[in-house]
Amino acid sequence: MDENLKREIMLENYMHPLNKEVVNDNTYIKVNTNNESCIDNLDIYLKIENNVIKDIKFMGEACAISTSSTSIMIKNLIGKTIKEAKEYITNFENMVEEKNYDSNILNEAIVYNEIYKQNNRKHCALLPYVGIKKILDNYQ
């Protein structure tokens, strides 16, 4: 994908992120995710029914990479089963860590396929995934 297009997609998701809103609904599971080395700090809210991710919302302050990555992740995970979501997440992580991955299932998230070139930004792209995994791994 062309550099400019990638930047545009990230910027669009940063300026107008999907589902960035406060949640006061106890059918959602909440998790906080933040970076030790920087100041990103997000709360992620997840609603699961019958092993399917029904909805995800988030709130907090984070950089353009983290915020856009969260927005794109949300678009991709809503409607997936937990198993599918985990597969998706592993693929994303593999891409960021320069391992083998299946680009077909990542959709828009492939805009981060060269983030490894900026070592200090990898954790930004991964930030929402760290949070969501905490929920999925503990979900029975």
Partner: peptide, 23 residues
């Protein structure tokens, strides 16, 4: 306005400016 402080710091870093973002 409208840009997270860390993104401004990253931007400035591209021009070798060292400024701090954060609390």
């Amino acid at each position: 306005d409208g840009i997270f402080s860390q993104d401004v710091a990253y931007y400035l870093n591209k021009y070798n400016f060292c400024v701090r973002a954060g609390s």
